[in-house]
Nucleic acid binder design. Structure first.
Lengths: 252, 252
DNA sequence: GATCATAGTCGTCTGCCTGACGATAAGCAC
DNA sequence: GTGCTTATCGTCAGGCAGACGACTATGATC
């Protein structure tokens, strides 16, 4: 097949972001309100077009910075700089997913520590952190009794896939530390797991597991009483990225 | 940002396929020889443009059928029809990955039982199964002493990612059965694991593990002596897709 | 037909890890 | 000090995996 520009249809390529964090003991995702059609006024995941000279990861990092102000961790520098973890999630290309034209969206998953407040993006009228259960229940009623409209486009599916990725990935990787500030206690890390998995974990077994896994946690020497009760040791994330054996997610 | 067709650059979108199978005790991938520039004469992964009215998964299934004649398993019908397993792998969009124009490729991973011979695709001059180590070692020398040229484009990276996905996924899923014919023995399944992981497994512990995992294997009642030695029971894949606890991959 | 090689299948034992849970430590509020 | 909270250490039993012995049932070879 010789090179013939008319031989293939043109596509628009976007990146959409599933940005997750843990706030008030529940897993939350960043949603922006759409300012223009289609789906005007509905909530959606942040995202935008990939520019002509941009890599996909660059585009995702740029979008993330625009909406949250977060920078992305250098994956080869496991030092905590309050940046976020960013990875490609999946690509969505149903011909009808955008009524305007043929759009292929490369979704990315970002995990961030709890942030003060979402920064309203330049082109997004409004932005907020919302519990993922609230965003995923389509056509139901939110905690305040208001009817909940499903997310725009196929973003409910994208969000569900991102949440599932995060839930499974903290089992066998040290990624849960991406939800924590640079220094954190074992209890704080445990509450991350509990929020992401929506389960209760035994504090004693959890402590034994995470402190016994080489390279997972590095004590910084400090202690804190942020949570009340007996002061807890502070840790940073160690260099290990894969947990072997993994954390076990209790069944239901 | 109002809808403005000039606001985004046009992309070409392709699907590329990492098609894996196990032949002669080694993990092999399907490679096609490129008939035209760029990279004319070099080996590459099979792939092609996504059509205007096609979903990404449809495009991948069509490409797979064109090159191998394989149909794809209905994921909700775990019956063995000698079809292949197909899943999205990742998307590659470096601005310079194709010298002709901006191409975003949505790579897919296909796992297939051993096939008689690759069917030379309509637009691919030649096709072959090659051991993945041979395809992944760039610029070295193959088993026949011939110099080995690296795969075209970024296909070496895509293949490496696909192989890694397959290697990790057979740990915690029943996907290894996708490499087997509809009916197979425990020994044949073990040889799949050994080929994919490049390790030797204890036949007795392996047998205990796979037959003891509920829903993994279903005995068909028949036996076979395909491999010589004592006749072995035949099994089909059971309904279970997730293995809990997982198969453990020996280190190194 | 006896013997051997090959592959399959069943058991045993030991060590490690996990879940359940008791006990103690060290802060804060009153 | 009392009570409450959270952190941390220990103990114990059950389950599972690795190492490996033993036996079974074929085909190949003598």
């Amino acid at each position: 097949m010789p090179y013939d520009p008319s031989a293939f249809p043109p596509f628009a390529v976007t990146v959409d972001l599933v940005v997750l964090t843990v706030r008030r003991h529940s897993l939350c995702a960043l949603a922006v309100r759409r300012g223009e059609p289609p789906f005007q006024g509905r909530w959606a995941l942040p995202g935008g077009f990939v520019r002509a000279d941009e890599d996909l990861a660059q585009a995702a990092a740029r979008e993330l910075a625009e909406v949250t102000g977060l920078r992305v961790h250098d994956p080869f520098a496991p030092v905590q700089d309050n940046g976020a973890h960013l990875e490609q999630l999946a690509t969505y290309g149903d011909p009808k997913r955008d009524p305007r034209m043929r759009v292929v969206s490369v979704a990315h998953l970002a995990l961030a520590p709890d942030l003060p407040a979402p920064r309203a993006g330049s082109d997004a009228g409004d932005a907020r952190w919302a519990p993922v259960e609230e965003l995923l229940q389509q056509g139901g009623y939110g905690r305040d009794g208001e009817p909940v409209a499903p997310l725009a486009f196929d973003h409910t599916q994208i969000l569900a896939d991102g949440v599932e990725r995060a839930r499974s990935k903290i089992e066998y990787s040290s990624l849960a530390t991406a939800f924590c500030p640079p220094e954190f206690t074992v209890g704080e890390l445990r509450r991350v797991y509990e929020a992401v998995w929506s389960v209760a974990l035994d504090p004693r077994n959890f402590h034994r597991k995470v402190t016994g896994t080489p390279g997972f946690l590095v004590p910084t020497g400090g202690t804190t009483t942020r949570q009340g009760g007996r002061p807890a040791q502070l840790f940073r994330a160690g260099g290990a990225t894969l947990l072997n054996p993994p954390m076990l997610r209790p069944e239901v």
